[in-house]
Amino acid sequence: MPPRRSYDQYCAAARALDAVGDRWTLLIVRELLAGPRRYTDLHADLPGVSTDVLASRLKDMEQRGLATRRRLPPPSAAYVYELTLRGRELLPVLEALAAWGAPALAERAPTDAVRAHWFALPLLRCLAAAGAGSGAGPGAEGVVEVRLDEGCFHVRLGGAAAADAAADDRTYGDGPAPDGADAALTLDAATCVAVSRGELTIGLGVREGRIEVSGDSVLAKALRES
């Protein structure tokens, strides 16, 4: 492999781009923020990336201390990649990029791939704001399962939930909540985009019949009333 190029600038932004500025790297981080992933799973959820490029980016991320590779305990013999603490610190960076890029979701091209958990990043702040701003205060915390036609994902919100997320390296995850959810949102992709772009609140979506919130927890009530 050719030596990595550097901007050779004594600048924090340049140093950051030296580490994560290559094509595909931040999207690999997006996938690993959902938890440990096998190489084959990463390749499946990064349509368009070649196997050589994916392997090269993962190797770079390991060398830069952003990700590690480990073998799952028996009976599984698979290896998984997961983010280090340094890698997980990129979550707010990805959230900011998702917020900045949300307006570009106005139109979906016929060739656009989509995965349900890709909506987690733009929704994290929206869901957290809905829970905190409803009058329920810091008690509106827990796990929210988001169900779309394309699949589902889950996110953890609030103080105690955030601590749990730190414990298992996740703030959101692909698929149903493994231990059950405190609230579940059912909506379509267009409504999800409208929420992430700030065009629709969750509460208004509920009142208009575009979003269904199920559950009887404090968090479910907070989301309905947001």
Results as ranks from 00 to 15, higher is better:
residue 60 D to T: 15
residue 65 G to F: 08
residue 101 G to W: 12
residue 106 A to M: 06
residue 124 L to I: 14
residue 86 R to E: 02
residue 48 G to H: 10
residue 153 F to C: 00
residue 72 L to S: 05
residue 144 V to R: 01
residue 13 A to R: 09
residue 55 A to N: 09
residue 155 V to E: 01
residue 123 L to M: 05
residue 98 A to N: 06
residue 52 D to Y: 12
residue 23 R to I: 05
residue 153 F to L: 00
residue 38 R to T: 15
residue 116 A to N: 01
residue 42 L to S: 03
residue 43 H to G: 04
residue 89 E to Y: 10
residue 53 V to T: 14
residue 104 A to L: 04
residue 18 D to H: 11
residue 37 R to F: 07
residue 124 L to A: 12
residue 127 L to W: 04
residue 50 S to G: 14
residue 15 R to C: 15
residue 20 V to D: 06
residue 157 L to M: 01
residue 34 A to W: 00
residue 135 G to T: 13
residue 22 D to Y: 04
residue 124 L to M: 15
residue 102 A to P: 02
residue 113 A to F: 15
residue 99 A to D: 05
residue 84 T to R: 01
residue 115 R to G: 11
residue 41 D to T: 15
residue 14 A to R: 09
residue 33 L to V: 15
residue 143 V to L: 00
residue 89 E to D: 11
residue 121 L to F: 03
residue 35 G to S: 02
residue 145 E to A: 05
residue 81 Y to I: 07
residue 143 V to C: 00
residue 122 P to T: 04
residue 94 L to R: 06
residue 138 P to G: 11
residue 146 V to H: 00
residue 41 D to A: 13
residue 54 L to P: 03
residue 26 L to S: 11
residue 67 A to C: 07
residue 28 I to Q: 01
residue 113 A to R: 15
residue 87 G to F: 03
residue 65 G to D: 02
residue 153 F to G: 00
residue 30 R to H: 09
residue 149 D to A: 07
residue 52 D to A: 14
residue 50 S to F: 14
residue 95 E to A: 14
residue 152 C to W: 02
residue 50 S to Y: 10
residue 82 E to T: 13
residue 21 G to K: 02
residue 41 D to G: 14
residue 137 G to R: 02
residue 14 A to Y: 12
residue 82 E to L: 11
residue 148 L to W: 04
residue 51 T to P: 03
residue 30 R to D: 07
residue 112 D to Q: 09
residue 48 G to W: 08
residue 86 R to S: 05
residue 152 C to S: 14
residue 87 G to S: 03
residue 148 L to Q: 06
residue 137 G to K: 01
residue 91 L to W: 08
residue 107 E to F: 07
residue 40 T to H: 07
residue 118 W to G: 00
residue 65 G to Y: 07
residue 33 L to Q: 13
residue 158 G to N: 04
residue 54 L to H: 15
residue 121 L to T: 01
residue 28 I to Y: 01
residue 43 H to S: 11
residue 97 L to S: 07
residue 29 V to T: 04
residue 59 K to L: 08
residue 121 L to V: 09
residue 106 A to W: 10
residue 79 Y to D: 02
residue 66 L to D: 05
residue 124 L to V: 14
residue 38 R to L: 08
residue 29 V to S: 00
residue 127 L to D: 03
